[in-house]
Simulated scan of single mutants.
Amino acid sequence: MTERQHRGMRNWPLTGLRVTTPRLELRLPSLDDLDQLADRAAEGVHDPGTMPFIVPWSDAGPEERARRTVQYHFSLWSSWSPAEWTCAFAVLFEGEVVGTQAIAATDFAVTREITSGSWLGRRFHGRGIGTEMRAAVLHLAFEGLGARYATSGAFVDNHASLAVSRKFGYADDGVQIHNRQGEPVTTLRLRLSRDDWAGGLGFKIHGLEPCLPLFGVAPTSPDR
Results as ranks from 00 to 15, higher is better:
79 S>W: 04
80 W>R: 04
80 W>C: 05
80 W>E: 06
81 S>C: 11
81 S>H: 05
81 S>A: 14
81 S>Q: 11
81 S>E: 11
81 S>N: 05
82 P>T: 09
82 P>C: 10
82 P>D: 10
83 A>C: 00
83 A>K: 03
84 E>V: 11
84 E>H: 15
84 E>P: 02
85 W>C: 05
85 W>D: 06
86 T>K: 03
87 C>M: 12
87 C>W: 11
87 C>I: 02
87 C>G: 01
87 C>E: 02
88 A>M: 10
88 A>E: 14
89 F>L: 10
89 F>I: 12
90 A>W: 02
90 A>S: 09
90 A>I: 03
90 A>P: 04
91 V>N: 06
91 V>M: 05
91 V>H: 06
91 V>C: 07
92 L>G: 06
92 L>R: 15
92 L>D: 05
92 L>Q: 14
92 L>S: 13
92 L>Y: 04
93 F>T: 03
94 E>K: 14
94 E>Y: 07
94 E>P: 07
94 E>N: 15
95 G>D: 02
97 V>E: 01
97 V>K: 00
98 V>N: 04
98 V>D: 08
98 V>C: 04
98 V>F: 04
98 V>G: 05
99 G>I: 02
100 T>Y: 01
100 T>D: 13
100 T>H: 06
100 T>E: 14
101 Q>G: 08
101 Q>H: 08
102 A>I: 02
102 A>H: 03
102 A>N: 11
102 A>D: 12
103 I>P: 01
103 I>K: 01
103 I>V: 15
104 A>S: 15
104 A>Y: 14
105 A>I: 01
105 A>F: 01
105 A>C: 01
105 A>T: 02
106 T>W: 00
106 T>I: 08
106 T>Q: 09
106 T>S: 04
108 F>Y: 09
108 F>I: 06
108 F>L: 05
108 F>R: 07
109 A>H: 13
109 A>Y: 07
109 A>K: 08
110 V>I: 13
110 V>R: 14
110 V>H: 14
110 V>E: 13
111 T>G: 10
112 R>F: 07
112 R>S: 14
112 R>K: 15
113 E>C: 09
113 E>K: 11
113 E>V: 11
113 E>P: 00
113 E>F: 00
113 E>M: 04
114 I>F: 06
114 I>L: 09
114 I>E: 00
115 T>H: 09
115 T>P: 00
116 S>F: 02
116 S>T: 14
116 S>K: 00
116 S>E: 07
116 S>I: 09
117 G>W: 02
118 S>I: 01
118 S>P: 01
118 S>N: 08
118 S>E: 04
119 W>V: 08
119 W>C: 07
119 W>E: 04
119 W>Y: 07
119 W>Q: 04
119 W>K: 05
119 W>T: 07
120 L>K: 07
120 L>E: 08
121 G>N: 10
121 G>L: 07
122 R>K: 11
122 R>A: 12
122 R>C: 03
122 R>Q: 13
123 R>C: 03
123 R>L: 01
124 F>N: 09
124 F>M: 12
125 H>P: 13
125 H>V: 11
125 H>K: 11
126 G>M: 12
126 G>N: 12
126 G>A: 13
126 G>L: 12
126 G>R: 12
127 R>H: 15
127 R>K: 15
127 R>V: 06
